[in-house]
Amino acid sequence: MTDVKFIIRTADQTRKAEVEMQRSSIGADIVQAAVDNWALPSDTDYALVNVTTGRSLVPTEMLDENFVQAGDVLEVQPVLVAGHA
């Protein structure tokens, strides 16, 4: 399986890195790596968006060529749940 090199960053853009991962990696793997490496709050859930293509990545979806191209920017966004209190 080939690798793909892309940019990953947080939604507030305070953290950013170029990474190379196997195309067999899934969205959930990338989010977990970001949470671990950047010590993001572990009591928050995160979604992954390819901001280059404007498409969210399904957590169980692999980094298929149709979804992620070399050089694309992927953003880790918090899943927002508040709004009532």
């Binding site: 939604a11 507030d12 853009q13 968006v49 390819n50 901001v51 404007g54 498409r55 969210s56 399904v58 957590p59 169980t60 979806e61 953003e75 966004q77």
Partner: peptide, 22 residues
């Protein structure tokens, strides 16, 4: 689709939400 808005930077990120097979 989803629109994610950052109230500090003013950046808005629209994204298509794909159907998940599982």
């Amino acid at each position: 689709d989803r629109i994610f808005l950052d109230s500090i930077s003013g950046i808005s990120r629209p994204s298509e939400l794909p159907v998940r097979v599982d």
